[in-house]
């Protein structure tokens, strides 16, 4: 995006959820990596002050010198605090402070910070803290768009609904929804809310369906994004979310049931007999 005065204007997108533990940080890391793989200049910002996490998920924890609060309080320049990704030169991380509390940053400072970042990058992805307090409000303060991550569970969907109300009240426009950790087998048995159920309840636009996938555990253990793993269903789903964010029309694939070792064995066994 370009302003009329020729200044570069990247998109500031906040990833939030209300409830903790639904996959905000994993979504931010994978979406950031996917957008960079697809040619964008991307910065991911950890706005969870005091509970720094995005750095370990991305495998960049050993490179941190300065953090977001150092920049805001003038101890470091923005460029000094930005950490380059191991593989992708166009992907950067701005880490959260680990030793400060969540009120170390004000809303105005976040708006100012995102304003600086959008001049340098095409996408500024902000990983919001859980909850509906100051940390969340700061995280959406400078955002043009909001992505809400939920899982198909009653508590996560309820909190997502709360967050949607707050995002709408903050006049950020209608948020987009990522439904994370879908288990197709449970959905087929009627024992898990389907994506359609969640959409009917929350009534916002869907931008991603991410299956529950054990490869996320492995990739997080290694500090690598799942989008690099071509075997990872979740990784492929995040690549699709990135393409949709960039305006491409990508159909939602029908999720395959992930089979366990035993089932695979019996599957083969069964076929032989028939």
């Amino acid at each position: 995006m370009q302003r009329s005065n020729g200044e570069h204007m990247g998109r500031v997108i906040t990833i939030t959820s209300g409830k903790g533990g639904v996959g905000k940080t994993t979504t931010t890391a994978n979406l950031g990596t996917a957008l960079a793989l697809q040619g964008g200049r991307v910065v991911v910002v950890d706005a969870d002050i005091g509970l720094r996490n995005l750095d370990v998920v991305m495998g960049l924890e050993n490179r941190i010198v300065y953090d977001l609060v150092d920049v805001v309080e003038g101890r470091a320049r923005l460029r000094q605090a930005l950490i380059k990704d191991k593989r992708l030169p166009e992907l950067c991380l701005l880490p959260a402070a680990q030793t400060r509390d969540k009120d170390a940053v004000t809303r105005e400072q976040m708006i100012d910070l995102t304003g600086q970042l959008r001049r340098e990058f095409d996408f500024v992805l902000i990983d919001s803290p859980a909850g509906i307090e100051n940390g969340f409000r700061n995280a959406i303060a400078g955002a043009d768009e909001v992505i809400i991550v939920t899982t198909p569970e009653v508590s996560a969907v309820r909190d997502a609904d709360r967050i949607i109300g707050l995002v709408e009240a903050a006049e950020k426009g209608p948020p987009n929804l990522v439904v994370n950790r879908i288990k197709p087998r449970l959905v087929n048995r009627g024992e898990m809310l389907s994506v359609e159920d969640v959409l009917e309840l929350l009534a916002i636009t869907l931008i991603g369906i991410v299956p529950d996938d054990e490869s996320i555990v492995t990739s997080t253990n290694r500090g690598e994004a799942a989008v690099y793993d071509h075997q990872s269903q979740a990784g492929r789903a995040f690549l699709d979310v990135a393409r949709r964010l960039r305006g491409e029309e990508v159909p939602f694939p029908v999720l395959q049931e992930q089979q366990g070792v035993l089932e695979r064995f019996f599957g083969i066994f069964g076929r032989r007999r028939s």
Binding site: V154, R158, R162, L186, G190, E191, M192, L193, D197, L201
Partner: peptide, 19 residues
């Protein structure tokens, strides 16, 4: 009833109450 439809019914009531 499949638990998903129970969840959906309960959520409908809860979300309306929240809103």
């Amino acid at each position: 009833d499949p638990s998903a439809s129970v969840a959906k019914q309960r959520l409908m009531m809860v979300l309306v109450d929240d809103r």
